[in-house]
Nucleic acid binder design. Structure first.
Lengths: 224, 224
DNA sequence: GAACTCTATCAACACTGTGTTGAGAAGGTC
DNA sequence: GACCTTCTCAACACAGTGTTGATAGAGTTC
């Protein structure tokens, strides 16, 4: 939900202005796809900073100037890929409030988060590229900000609902708590995904995060 | 504590190998200081990516090749600055276990964290530069990893102590919880410092973070 | 005070990467 | 066959990094 996206799955029929190819529809769709595929492949091999426009062009079997016919910059390619990844993640997402009601707090949260992170876990290189892009690219910042915002909104709703039905005690404003918890998840998941210095083991992250969420929201690790 | 650092406060007498100037001691100390000061100033004005070696050289009143006499690269300048910032932050830090014992959990935590973040809050540009550097610079990653690690170690000790004296209930391994909590703080503080998309207000961050810490560690926002 | 040494300085160069220009080829249409 | 439109790339112009080599000056040393 939320979030902009000018990227259908592969061939959008309407106006592809902004990031995509600059002309209109045509057969060179293959080239465009080749560039995107090359980028995805290379990103799982090495960081964005070590991939040049020339690498992408070569990988797609075209010259560098021709690359610029399809994309205005290297960043645009990565943003397109991230757009799609985010769309994939959003697609696999279910109504968290429903999941929680059906499975109870602990199992429900677990299911929701597992679901949410599934798409990201399968393409760490793309996630890293998105993160690397933020310092220099405002569009990347905005895109990720919108993603975070939609999660925060969901979590805020959950906290408010649980409080209203008496399952969770009062505490700091729900939105503030939601922001901090979502930020913790982002940071922890990212660190684990990339195997950073101090980080949680891949098979422990979720358990630990969920425990903290439950204690923070319900005051106990085993609510209801 | 912990953490490497080849930077005294201004003029280290011993071997300055690694980052600093490459020769030995001499009067060109002024130049070196001028470069560092220029970098600190410019970093509060614009992001690292928009500052060139030439900008630093010009700001210090020297030519670009001369810059390379003092520092091997732009990154080295920033790393030196960060080294010092981290040292400043470590200096103002008190034994957290003591602070907690003297002030009680809530007030003690607050005091410790306020103390810890004071140095960072005064130089957001430097913090941002450090963060921007991580994707491309391993030394920056390692440096920050070491800082995180020392905080994690402290927090782990606190959690274990509180559990051992019966003030905190059992839960996930102390170190795992400490990692997640420290990561949350890092992310939340950074987002607030830079005014990111969804982030907590400057005057609310600590309250919210502390509340989550207390609930996560003690099971209640107002422990004994 | 000439020979020597070490710090400090920079013009000129070599290189890597980005993005642009302008001239076409290849195909479809009327 | 004149005429768009898509697509392609050699050649260029730039911005930035890091290196070379020559040299100025200050400080010993004898």
């Amino acid at each position: 939900m939320a979030t902009a996206s000018n990227a259908g799955t592969t061939a959008p029929p309407s106006a592809p202005k902004g990031r995509g190819r600059r002309g209109t529809r045509a057969s060179g769709d293959d080239r465009e796809r080749a560039i995107l595929e090359t980028a995805e492949r290379l990103l799982e091999e090495r960081p964005l900073a070590e991939i040049s426009v020339d690498d992408l062009a070569k990988g797609a079997g075209i010259s560098r100037p021709t690359f610029y016919f399809y994309f205005p910059s290297k960043d645009a390619v990565v943003l397109t890929i991230i757009d799609r990844l985010v769309a994939d993640a959003a697609e696999g997402r279910e109504e968290i409030l429903t999941t929680l009601a059906e499975n109870g707090p602990r199992a429900g949260l677990r299911k929701s988060l597992e679901n949410l992170y599934a798409a990201f876990r399968s393409r760490p290189g793309v996630v890293r590229a998105g993160s690397d892009l933020r310092p220099t690219n405002e569009e990347a910042r905005d895109l990720w900000g919108a993603v975070m915002e939609s999660w925060v909104a969901d979590v805020t709703a959950v906290i408010e609902f649980e409080r209203s039905r008496g399952a969770a005690p009062a505490g700091p404003p729900a939105r503030e708590m939601a922001i901090a918890l979502v930020q913790m998840n982002e940071r922890a998941q990212y660190a684990t995904l990339l195997g950073e210095a101090p980080s949680l083991d891949r098979d422990r992250v979720l358990d630990v995060l969920i425990d903290i969420w439950l204690r923070a929201i319900y005051g106990t690790p085993e609510p209801g």
